[in-house]
């Protein structure tokens, strides 16, 4: 369970320290710390789109951080969420003896719009510290699925961003070769999205064939 976020030389690479350096070093950069409640305590930094490439370059070339190794790039899908909450409101109600104020409980439904997210895990090969975690979020899951590509900063993002494009449908602007990587070219959907529905199989498959009445059972009966 040793994940030293402070390296032996003593450079503090906690999310908070990185944020402070970014705000100072990249003018106009908006970085927010995203807390992580698990015992791993790997907090991350949410970057804005305009300054993402600049901030990434800054972190890569920073003399103390030297985050030259982008280890892991991945997409995460956060679909639209409907949150129901009960709120107490004071309303004026017409009573038998004139209008009167009364406390009424109301259920309110709010739709939290979904978004797609990419997560970058950065380490430093030179200084041997990490991880520093960056996040980028798209505006929504439909048309606004664009993010700046960090492949020009770290070459290792090339295939991994292609994978996020393929499986999640995140479009990386500035990626040199954004094609599908694991699915075939004519495939249209994005299988890692939470609402993905696989197409019907035309061939009988063995999967779940052990349920009675399935092709497997009939095959057994036909013997």
């Amino acid at each position: 369970m040793s994940s030293p976020s402070i390296d032996p030389v003593g450079v503090d690479v906690s999310a908070e320290a990185i944020r402070a350096a970014l705000v100072k070093g990249v003018p106009g950069c908006e970085a927010t710390v995203v807390e992580n409640g698990s015992p791993s305590a790997q907090h991350s930094l949410l970057l804005d789109h305009e300054h993402a490439v600049e901030a990434a370059t800054f972190l890569r070339d920073h003399a103390e951080f030297r985050l030259d190794f982008c280890s892991n790039v991945t997409g995460v899908d956060w679909p639209d969420k409907e949150v129901t909450e009960k709120v107490k409101v004071t309303k004026v109600v017409d009573g038998p003896d004139g209008p009167k104020e009364q406390q009424v409980e109301e259920t309110r439904k709010t739709l939290i719009p979904g978004y797609l997210e990419t997560v970058y895990h950065l380490f430093s090969m030179e200084k041997k510290h990490g991880p520093v975690i960056l996040r980028l979020r798209t505006a929504n899951r439909g048309e606004g699925n664009h993010l700046p590509s960090l492949t020009p900063v770290w070459r290792s993002a090339e295939f991994q961003e292609r994978e996020a494009f393929d499986l999640f449908g995140i479009v990386f602007d500035g990626h040199p070769d954004l094609r599908r990587i694991l699915m075939w070219e004519d495939f249209t959907d994005h299988p890692m999205r939470k609402d993905y529905v696989p197409p019907e199989e035309d061939e009988p498959v063995m999967d779940d064939g052990c349920a009675p009445g399935s092709s497997a059972e009939q095959g057994a009966a036909g013997q």
């Binding site: 992580n36 409640g37 698990s38 991880p131």
Partner: peptide, 18 residues
């Protein structure tokens, strides 16, 4: 597990497996 996230990595014979 509680709500949260974690990245674990090891040196597999091929490289960094995370």
């Amino acid at each position: 597990p509680k709500v949260g996230e974690a990245y674990g990595r090891i040196e597999s014979p091929k490289g960094e497996l995370g």
